[in-house]
Amino acid sequence: MTHRERAIMALTLQQPDYVPTFELEYQLADIVFGKDFLYEDQLKGLSPAETEKALKENAEYLIRVYSELEHSILPLHYLSEEHICQTARYINEMTNNGFLLTTHGDGTFAIPDGDGMLDFVYRIADEPDEVKAQARKMADAAIEHNKRMMDAGIESFILCSDYCFNAGPFLSPDMFAEFVQPYLYDIIAAIRADGGYAIKHTDGNIMPIIDQLVECNPHALHSLDPMAGVDIKEVKEKYGKKVALCGNVHCAYLQTGTDEQVLESCRYAMENAKPGGGYIFCTSNIPFRGMPVERYQMVLDYWRANRNY
């Protein structure tokens, strides 16, 4: 079974040979494998031939890193849309479609940053129709973007607009239903219509809006953030027949917890979400720069020892 086949089985609620793993992003490549992935800025000023060479080398490096990590879903970031597409073609050709490729594909309102938050909130209160018109434009743009990505051989999308804090959603459930959910639904429907796979990620406590998220019909929900009290056992029991699950390994423990806490979080996620398939084992955020590399290795070691069905 290839990584791609394994990931697709999990995303379609089936039970593969073993529980696959992946991460939205892997920021430890430079420390563990000796160099970082290619960034668009590094291509500035290069000739077309030099650009092609750099992209091919980056594709080879991505394959090497994610093969050694044994990730089934390979995320493509840091490059322009055109260069992500080119990289996807190289990787699919070099691996004979061995990985399920993924890239960002969301187009819904996330929690706004800093000063933008007040502006957004006041607009919701004062000019809701204009906000909805903007939401429609953003969703339409995401749908078009995702189609171009799929044409290049990227079959899955991580929809990474964050909606929730640890305490709960930023928008009330009613506001979420008005300003986000219909547009998320359309983005996912378009991905499905084109034969793709949608993984909806959001940090935080999603429980007050989880029904709305599941109604949008993503293939998987990602993060299932234990730092925000999301219990993967409860989610598996209530929603495990409708949507695949990804994550729940406590990311903060990887930085500040004990080895025992890390392993206990791995155990809880694996033992409660693995049965019957439909689970992809991963952290509740990403292996971020600054995290002790041995801690992520511990997560991978646990996974290797416990992944088989």
Binding site: V121, A167, F170, L171, S172, M175
Partner: peptide, 14 residues
């Protein structure tokens, strides 16, 4: 108590 959410708080604060 999760009866209102951030936007309602910010609009009330305004």
């Amino acid at each position: 108590n999760n009866e209102v959410f951030v936007p309602e708080v910010l609009i009330a604060a305004r």
